[in-house]
Every structure is written in structure tokens, then in C-alpha cells.
């Protein structure tokens, strides 16, 4: 039952993302366009490029989708409304998301094309920039909750949401989440202006549909992670918990999808420099601060 509810939420969330993204890119809100696009993609030929690494070409999009779904599995929508409440949920989320990289490298390598390959390897560089900024803020969150379980993390924020408790960690995590879901301005692997679609450039038809769906699931999972770790998950007055979770997730996705488009695409070298020279010291400072606060204040 849980699974059905969560999958329904997922489907709605994905559709919402498609609408918001259409709005962000084309400047107009169309409720029907995502459905039409999806249908049209299913009707189109799914081309195989001339000399692909067939295994990776096929496996890349599917692995990406599986990874997104696995990440969703540990996001609680309400007490008990979670697919698996792992004792190491926060770490599991991390582990699942690490395979986004693997999927993108596969999808980039598979088609045997210049743009795709550069896009795939670029994401490896991007990963090296953001990976620590996913792990370290989660560490601080887990320190406060004294648990890696996502439900315990949510309940630990009953008195004060983590966004106020550890704002540095929040900012870093949101940026890292945007990098992970390759949202603009961190859309280096598929940058339309540099690489004409990057790793997506050779995918058509159903395969492209799977790739885009997977990406939306990942965006939603990242929004879920932000809500769970920093915005108090299902906590909130008046409304039922699951509604709070969904509302928060939709607000976060909208913010993630729209704000990044106001700045130009970041160059990979700059991203790496920022991640390591600024991000990691800040993340360490965040861990230190959280440790001190957790010892001194009792909230």
C-alpha cells in the first residue's frame, strides 16, 4: 500500500516537475505539453547509433531510473509512509546517488560520440566537486539526530528545523543537490550551449523518455532529501503530515528548477575550485559547529 501511495506521489511530482521545467525553459505554463511530449517520444523511433557500446547504451538510462527510485525508497512522506525505513537510510541515499555518476558515465560512453563522452566524463569531474558536499552536511544532520535513519532525522527536528539549526549545511547541500541532478547552472553533462545535449545527444524515442523520466525522479528524490534533512519532513501544523511533505517537496523543486537559470553556467574548473577550497572547509566548519551546539544546547 505504501508503495502504491508513494509511486502515485512520485508520478504526480514528476508531472509537476515537467510543467515547471517547461515554464522555466519556454516561459509559458502548459498543463498538457509534458503528456504530449511523453506520448510523442514513445511514438518516435528509438535510434541506435552506428557503433555503440550496446550494453552501456541500453543500461545507462535504466540504471539512472533505478537509482532514482532507490533513493526515493528511503524518503519518508509521513510516519510509516516510507518504502523501507533502513537504519542507515541517510547513507543508503548517498550510496544510491553515487550511481547517478555510474549511469551517466555509461550513457556518455555508450553511444560512441564526442559530445556524449565529454558530457559523461564531465559529470565525473562535477561529482568530485560536489560529492563531499553531499556527505558532510548529511554527517552533521546525522550527528544531531544521533541516527542515520531518515525517520529519526525528521523527528529530531521537532523543535527546530535543521535549516535554522545548521544553515551552512543547508546551503551546501542544496547546491550539491543541484549539481547532482545537473540542474542549471550546474548542467555541465548535458549543457545545451556547449555540448548540444551532451550525454543525452544520441538518445531518441523511448530511451530518451526513460532518461528524462529518471532525471525528474532524481530531482524529486533530491527535493525529498532536502525536505527530510533540513525542512522538517512531514512536520508542520494543521495539515496532515504527508501533505506537508508533498507541499515542501514541490516548493523545493520549483525553487531548484527556476533559480539556477538566472546565472550563467559554471565552468567545471571553477566548480571544482569552489567545491574544494570553499565548500569543504565550510562543510567541516558546519560539522564542528553542529557538534559544539549539540553538546552545549539541548534542542
Amino acid at each position: 500500500m505504501n508503495i502504491v501511495i508513494i509511486l502515485l506521489t512520485l508520478a504526480m511530482g514528476v508531472y509537476f516537475i515537467a510543467i515547471v521545467e517547461g515554464w522555466a525553459v519556454h516561459g509559458r505554463i502548459s498543463l498538457s505539453r509534458p503528456a504530449l511530449s511523453a506520448l510523442a517520444l514513445f511514438g518516435r523511433e528509438s535510434l541506435l547509433v552506428r557503433t555503440p557500446d550496446r550494453l552501456f547504451f541500453e543500461a545507462g538510462p535504466i540504471l539512472l531510473l533505478v537509482v532514482g527510485l532507490l533513493a526515493m525508497a528511503v524518503i519518508p512522506l509521513a510516519p510509516g509512509l516510507i518504502i523501507t525505513d533502513l537504519a542507515t537510510g541517510a547513507l543508503f541515499l548517498n550510496a544510491a546517488l553515487a550511481y547517478v555518476l555510474v549511469a551517466l558515465i555509461m550513457a556518455g560512453w555508450g553511444p560512441n560520440g564526442g559530445y556524449a563522452m565529454i558530457g559523461g566524463w564531465r559529470f565525473l569531474g562535477q561529482f568530485i566537486a560536489y560529492a563531499m558536499l553531499i556527505v558532510m552536511p548529511i554527517t552533521a544532520v546525522a550527528m544531531r539526530a544521533e541516527s542515520l535513519s531518515t525517520t529519526v532525522i525528521v523527528t529530531s527536528q521537532a523543535q527546530l528545523w535543521n535549516v535554522f539549526y545548521q544553515p551552512i549545511g543547508f546551503v551546501l547541500f542544496v547546491l550539491a543537490a543541484m549539481a547532482l541532478a545537473w540542474l542549471p547552472p550546474l548542467d555541465l553533462p548535458n549543457a545545451p550551449g556547449d555540448l548540444a545535449g551532451g550525454f543525452e545527444a544520441e538518445y531518441t524515442g523511448v530511451r530518451l523518455a526513460v532518461l528524462r523520466l529518471a532525471r525528474m525522479v532524481i530531482i524529486l528524490a533530491m527535493a525529498g532529501a532536502i525536505v527530510t534533512f533540513y525542512l522538517g519532513g512531514w512536520l508542520g501544523p494543521w495539515l496532515p503530515g504527508w501533505l506537508w511533505s508533498i507541499i515542501k517537496m514541490l516548493i523545493v523543486t520549483t525553487a531548484m528548477l527556476t533559480t539556477g537559470r538566472l546565472v550563467p553556467r559554471v565552468r567545471e574548473a571553477n566548480l571544482l575550485a569552489a567545491g574544494w577550497k570553499l565548500g569543504i572547509p565550510l562543510a567541516l566548519a558546519n560539522i564542528f559547529l553542529v557538534g559544539v551546539i549539540a553538546l552545549v544546547v539541548d534542542i
Binding site: 537504519a87 542507515t88 547513507l91 548517498n94 550510496a95 561529482f127 542515520l148
Partner: peptide, 18 residues
């Protein structure tokens, strides 16, 4: 060994991609 398993799965993704 849940923690170790998840950790192994996570670490190796990065390591092997590199």
C-alpha cells in the same frame, strides 16, 4: 552488516568511476 554493505556500495561507485 548493513552499514558496511551500504558503505562499500557507495565508496566503490566513486572509486571505480575514477
Amino acid at each position: 552488516a548493513e552499514f558496511l554493505g551500504v558503505l562499500q556500495i557507495m565508496m566503490m561507485a566513486t572509486e571505480m568511476s575514477v
